[in-house]
Amino acid sequence: MAALGELERSVMDLLWDHQEALTANAVRDLLAQTEDSKGLAVTTVLTVLARLEKKGLVSRERGTRPHLYHPTASREEHTVGLIEDALGTAADREAVLVRFAGAISAGDAAALLRVLAAREERDTSLPAGA
């Protein structure tokens, strides 16, 4: 199970790094170039691709044979999704994650910066003045 999860990640990285859609065979061949994924059966790759498709990470072009697979969104787009989750952008998501400094308003953040700046100023000017 854990090994399958790692394989899913490798396949996803591969698809994200490639500009064009790939067939399962191409994925297997590209994986075979890395040390730890040698001798992988195409059926295993197909299983992994099916799982990724079910998770909504990969979509399949059925017009061609063999089928071509490509990521539904780029790595960056998915990361932005995670960040939006964490920032609680959607109203009903607010409590999903507790974020460091989450409830601090813009005004408070600015005030805090000013205080820290003033403390710094005070601390650096004291030895010179003494």
């Binding site: 408070d108 005030a111 205080v115 100023e121 005070r122």
Partner: peptide
């Protein structure tokens, strides 16, 4: 410090002794 806005620093200077904390809405801060 000289590069920072002198206005903001001046504001911070008078704010520190009494504490600008009345102005803070966050009790945590």
């Amino acid at each position: 410090p000289a590069a920072a806005s002198s206005e903001a620093l001046a504001a911070a200077r008078w704010a520190v002794p009494g504490g600008p904390h009345e102005a803070l809405s966050s009790r945590r801060l």
